[in-house]
Design a protein around this nucleic acid. Sequence first.
DNA 1: TTTTTTACTAGAATCTCATTCTAGATTACC
DNA 2: GGTAATCTAGAATGAGATTCTAGTAAAAAA
Lengths: 203, 203
Amino acid sequence: MTSRKTAVRAGTAARQESILKAALDCFTGLGVDATTIEDICRESGASIGSLYHHFGSKEGVASGLFIDGIKRLNADLLKKLARCRSAEAGVRIVVMQYCDWVTKHRELARYLLNSRDIAFSEAARAELKQIHRAHIIAVFQWFAPFVAAGDMKRLPPDTYVPIISGPIQDYTRHWLAGQTQASPSKVKLVFADAAWNAMRTRA
Amino acid sequence: MTSRKTAVRAGTAARQESILKAALDCFTGLGVDATTIEDICRESGASIGSLYHHFGSKEGVASGLFIDGIKRLNADLLKKLARCRSAEAGVRIVVMQYCDWVTKHRELARYLLNSRDIAFSEAARAELKQIHRAHIIAVFQWFAPFVAAGDMKRLPPDTYVPIISGPIQDYTRHWLAGQTQASPSKVKLVFADAAWNAMRTRA
DNA sequence: TTTTTTACTAGAATCTCATTCTAGATTACC
DNA sequence: GGTAATCTAGAATGAGATTCTAGTAAAAAA
């Protein structure tokens, strides 16, 4: 296979974005199962052929939207984490930025929390796994020095994420699902405290 | 409306169970979206008409399986909780029984954790909400005396479940999704410790 | 510039299911 | 035994995802 210029055209990114945006609107309003390809085409102005050219299938649109959202969420966390200067600040920001991001991007967050990647194609799942792995490594690299210095507990590696992020994710999932609970911003300090208490080594 | 005997026939429960069992097998093996009604019929030996008579739709089968699973999970917890005699034992059993149940009923647990009730009908969602509410009330009634006695922290009511159960649920979801993590039974003590530490009032 | 290649758009035709419908079999209850 | 309901069957229908063929237009090559 000779290497080859892909020659992506000018309007392409815009068209893809318009399809993803339309898909999110439809998914939010009608539910993923109930939205048809035609709905997305109508809402985005793309033709069926165009949509299939760019995404290959309805599942391709769904996983594209999912991957795009996860990337934004992850990037936002890394940006904010980079500004922190202590283990406590880091642990707290993990909880706080999740609250803030979910509150700021409600529809997308609802979609991310309610889609289970199980329904995606093998390829999409592999990409997500790769993205997840890279993100976890980046976050762990940030925290590693603090664990080494004894500022944070040393636990089985796979337990950090559930203990720090599990509670706030569970809470926001219920909030987004429309249960009448206080908005995350009202309780985020409770969860940030809980997370830090679970991680701190000194009183 | 005059009250009226419903006259459910003898083999009915067995037939419904066979359909739910077949559905779980198909969902596990092929994924929910990819399994067809015909798949479930073939696997269960039921006809299309019979399946639709009992469940009304594919979504009806999916939500029936979900509701059935949630009921079992909840009932198992309440049974084990009733045997506990301290706040610490109660908090720990919430974590431990979740681990144990998920390990013992892997396929069903995977289905419960990966289905989002968002896709269900209004009626099914209402029933689930009702079941959830009743269960939460029962669990809170068990814990209330200990909170009143000062054995456990007093927090915003909606934060107890996320803080106690959120981490282990997050962990098991990843485990069931096939990430190469240690089985829940290997780390359940870590999560039980974390949950109790987050709730205890005395050192 | 002209030509050629390739990305991209369009939407009609196809095909895969979920669901509906009609008919008939079986069981509970009198 | 009668009869009214539950339950079983599977063919017919219809909705909608996907495919296919035919183009259009931008980029690369000439």
